[in-house]
Simulated assay, not measured.
Amino acid sequence: MSETLRNSVKTMVKETFEGPPVPIKGSWFTNSEPNSGIFGVLEGMSCDQASMSVHGTTLAAHADHIRYHMWGTNEILKKGKQPQMDWGKSWDIHSVDEQQWNRIQERLRNEYLTFLESIDTIEWNELLANEVLSSLAHSAYHLGAIRQMLKVVKV
């Protein structure tokens, strides 16, 4: 993969999780204020807010589902094959206490950092490029879903 394309992919992944760069020079697809990526949005949520059911799911479940998907992607990037995954189980979280909520966020951040490192180190091929881009799209989708849930949770 060309260095230009690799850097562009990393820019989009970073915006999804970290929000636009600071100082803000605009954004590609998130809101342009600081902390508008997944981490910034989740950081401001209490464990009670993260546990509030919105149409049958919670912010905690979304956050852990993103982590689970990213873990699967990281396994594919490391080993070249899909690990055994139970997608239904990735939505099992209905309520969290403060410690559990902090652990979910920490584990998500760790998978994200592993993902960023992998983008720089993998031997690119079509399968891995598709995997990286689908993980970006999946995470961006859930950022949008989380932001919509905030309209209910932060009332």
Rank of each mutant, 00 (worst) to 15 (best):
N7I: 04
N7A: 08
V9F: 05
T11A: 13
V13K: 00
K14Q: 13
E15V: 02
E18R: 06
G19N: 01
P20K: 07
K25Y: 07
G26Y: 02
F29Y: 14
E33L: 03
N35K: 10
S36F: 00
G37P: 01
L42T: 00
E43D: 15
S46L: 01
C47N: 15
C47T: 09
C47E: 14
Q49Y: 02
A50T: 00
M52S: 10
S53C: 07
S53N: 14
V54S: 10
T57Y: 01
T58H: 05
H62C: 05
I66T: 03
R67E: 09
R67A: 11
E75A: 11
K78H: 10
K79R: 14
K79D: 13
K81V: 13
Q82T: 15
W87K: 12
S90W: 02
D92I: 10
D92F: 07
H94V: 12
D97K: 06
N102F: 05
R107C: 11
F115V: 11
F115C: 03
E117K: 14
S118W: 07
I119F: 02
D120T: 14
I122T: 13
W124Q: 12
L128R: 14
E131P: 02
A145L: 08
L150G: 01
K151Y: 04
V152G: 04
V153D: 02
